[in-house]
Amino acid sequence: MLTVPRGENCILPCSFKTGADVVIDWIQGTEGNLVHSYHHSQDQLSYQDRRFRNRTSLFKDQISRGNASLQLTGVQDQGRYRCFTSTILSKKESFIHLQVDGRKIQQMQTVQVKNNITCSSEGIYPEPELTWSTNPPSNMSFNTTTRVQQTEQQLYNISSSLILSDPGTDVVYSCTISTRRNNGTATLFESSKKGSDNVGGIIGGVVAAIVVIAAAAVTCVVLYLKKRSTTDSTPDSAAQQTVDLPMSPLETG
């Protein structure tokens, strides 16, 4: 088995016993995809699988010495490769399994909308897995939805959404995206009871201030009403004046 990082170049080894009329055919997979063909002392690429076009070559100066190794660029096609060689004297068939190594997780995106947090990453290989965790660890069950999509370049995009069941708890939420070779972790959300306590303290202070103001207002109203009542019970100065009315003629007689 040959393991190569995705996108790198590699050499698939193959050798044969030298002789005249050399034929070299490289075939990939059980479907018989033609990777590279050589006979009549030159490349024969008319039937080459389009995925391998401009990505394969032989060591022409070493074929006469029995070297049928294939150079493959931009590795992305893992699987079993068959090297078939023949000359006027003999035939030979050999196999090699190419495994494409993981592509490093370079970036993770995190988004939070209300009580929903999303973790995602793109351009990963091989197919990744995504897991959620908390710090400190807990036994809570996560309400998640995870999607994995494969692109035309045989890379993978992954996205997972988590619905927070109790946003008020003092917990750090993290997601980890991993493959066989590497992984990445992102801290997505942290809620603290201290923040809630501060808000409660502020609200309590505001309520207390309102109560004090209301009490002061009631006191002022009571004092005002009391003063007014006292004023109303005192005889008016104009009412205390004696009005002398004119005497009638009978009274004057």
Score class of each variant (00 low, 15 high):
N115G: 03
D232V: 03
K114W: 15
R103I: 12
E8A: 14
P13M: 13
T151I: 02
Q109T: 04
S174C: 05
Q48F: 13
N182L: 04
C83P: 07
M247F: 12
Q241S: 01
A216H: 10
L164H: 05
S160W: 06
N182K: 10
T242S: 12
F16T: 09
T179E: 08
N157E: 02
S159T: 15
I117S: 00
C10E: 03
F52G: 00
S120I: 00
A216I: 15
I203V: 15
T219N: 10
N183F: 06
G19W: 10
R51M: 08
Y125Q: 04
T30S: 13
S69Y: 02
I117L: 14
D236K: 09
Q99F: 06
R65F: 12
H40R: 06
I163P: 05
C10G: 04
A20L: 09
T134V: 01
T219R: 07
S90Q: 09
T176N: 14
E93P: 08
R228K: 04
V23L: 13
R53C: 08
V206S: 10
P167A: 10
V75R: 04
F84N: 11
L58S: 05
S248M: 13
D77W: 07
A186S: 11
S120G: 13
S15P: 12
R65E: 08
H36C: 08
Q42W: 05
I213H: 03
L162I: 01
V23C: 01
Q109F: 13
S237V: 11
R65C: 08
D101F: 07
T242K: 11
E251W: 15
G205I: 02
Y173D: 01
C119P: 08
D77N: 15
E31D: 15
A68Y: 00
Q28K: 13
P249F: 14
L245A: 12
Q62C: 04
L225K: 13
G74Y: 04
V221Y: 00
H39P: 00
Q99T: 07
L89T: 15
A215I: 06
I27G: 00
Q99H: 05
K226G: 09
T176F: 02
Q62Y: 03
Q71L: 08
T18W: 11
T234N: 07
V100S: 02
N182S: 14
N183M: 03
V211S: 03
W26K: 00
V148R: 11
R65W: 05
Y156D: 04
G195T: 15
T151A: 02
E129Q: 11
V100H: 00
D43G: 01
M247G: 03
E31W: 03
H97F: 10
L70V: 03
T118K: 13
K114L: 01
N183S: 14
I203L: 01
S94V: 12
V111G: 06
T118C: 09
S69T: 08
I158C: 11
C175T: 00
I88Y: 06
I158F: 04
Q112N: 06
V172I: 14
W132S: 05
V221G: 00
N198L: 11
S165Q: 12
G204L: 08
L225I: 11
M1L: 07
D236W: 08
P235G: 06
V207L: 13
D166Q: 07
T230A: 05
D25Y: 12
C14E: 12
Q109R: 15
V212F: 10
S57K: 15
E93M: 15
D232A: 13
N135I: 06
I105T: 00
T185P: 11
T73A: 10
